[in-house]
């Protein structure tokens, strides 16, 4: 039987003499969550709050410099907690998703462990060194976890590492370098996921792929729009060529998958880049007016193209 969606019900309601009671009953039966969905939601909600508050409490505990505690005890407590969360993940008889949530605490606690290590031995490590160690130590767990929420956390950590690295260790680098690296990071993540999808038939949620694609588009757009206002250099050229290749692949993949999201994202990014180039050529009033018209007309053209694509998709 075809699944009845809220959109279907709203559409049929417009042209029917449905009674409020019967409409309400249909919504409850087909759209609103049932007992099983509520059970799963409440379980995940409660355990996420439990693990989240506990880890935050541990972070706050060690953020205070406990001079009275021996370093062996400090490091020992955190290490024990890392091991405990891993044991709970591996042996508890819970649902797999609950185990993964508990397992997310372990990589977070590794950060606390490095923080305590820095406190105890006064390593005076730079921020990027701290985050780089964190990224390196948890990377294997992240790859084997098969948990997209943890992948997203990992991507955020790599993102922060790159920003600190460029600020602290590469102060004289090209202005496009940070954008090129960030764009490269999200590109690599996207391609890796596509490969996993194709060859390992991995189950990767759409929201994760969309988040990664948004990251790629944002940093490619920012990098090129910013780079055209500086002296062109090799990094900027690499960013442009890389973006061109990735977008060509993205359009091809989007057309084959008939993905409105991917095509909209790439189109919007290209429109913004072209508008930036137009404003770089001239910042006169007439050029600003032309740029405004260009944005409206090009977005309208893209919407028309996507609607045509959607029609073809629906008609097979």
């Amino acid at each position: 039987m075809s699944k009845i969606s809220r959109e279907d019900i709203h559409l049929i309601n417009t042209y029917s003499n449905w009674t409020t009671e019967s409409l309400s009953a249909i919504l409850r039966r087909h759209v609103y969550p049932d007992r099983q969905q509520w059970k799963l939601f409440l379980q995940l909600f409660i355990i996420t709050l439990g693990v989240g508050f506990t880890v935050a409490g541990i972070v706050f505990f060690f953020a205070y410099n406990w001079n009275g505690l021996h370093r062996f005890l400090k490091l020992g407590i955190v290490e024990s907690l890392v091991v405990l969360s891993l044991i709970l993940t591996l042996i508890s008889g819970q649902k797999i998703v609950v185990r993964k949530i508990i397992g997310t605490a372990a990589p977070a606690l590794v950060g606390v462990l490095l923080l305590v290590y820095g406190q105890v031995y006064q390593t005076s490590a730079l921020e990027y060194e701290f985050f780089l160690q964190w990224v390196l130590f948890i990377s294997i767990w992240v790859f084997v976890s098969g948990f997209p929420h943890l992948w997203l956390l990992f991507l955020m950590l790599v993102h922060i590492t790159i920003i600190f690295y460029m600020e602290q260790a590469q102060k004289n680098s090209s202005p496009s370098a940070v954008y090129a690296l960030l764009s490269g990071l999200y590109n690599a993540a996207y391609f890796l996921n596509i490969l996993l999808l194709k060859w390992r038939k991995a189950k990767i949620p759409l929201w994760f792929l969309q988040c990664v694609a948004i990251g790629t588009a944002i940093f490619a757009t920012m990098g090129i729009s910013n780079g055209i206002h500086h002296e062109p250099d090799i990094v900027f050229a690499l960013l442009c060529i890389g973006t061109l290749i990735v977008y060509a692949f993205g359009v091809d993949y989007g057309l084959r998958q008939k993905s409105s999201f991917l095509l909209s994202l790439i189109s919007l990014s290209v429109i913004i880049i072209i508008a930036s180039i137009m404003l770089k050529i001239s910042e006169s009033q007439s050029m600003i007016l032309v740029t405004g018209l260009f944005i409206i007309l090009s977005v309208t053209a893209v919407i028309k193209m996507l609607s045509a694509l959607q029609n073809r998709k629906e008609n097979g």
């Binding site: 409105s260 600003i288 977005v299 919407i303 609607s307």
Partner: peptide, 29 residues
């Protein structure tokens, strides 16, 4: 005629972002 809603959230967002960018550009003008 219900092609628009079928195009999904991406098209809604494209319209909104495109519209806002257009408004900002015209405001500059």
């Amino acid at each position: 005629e219900d092609r628009y809603s079928a195009s999904g959230v991406a098209v809604w967002l494209l319209s909104i972002v495109g519209g806002l960018l257009g408004a900002i550009t015209f405001l500059s003008f």
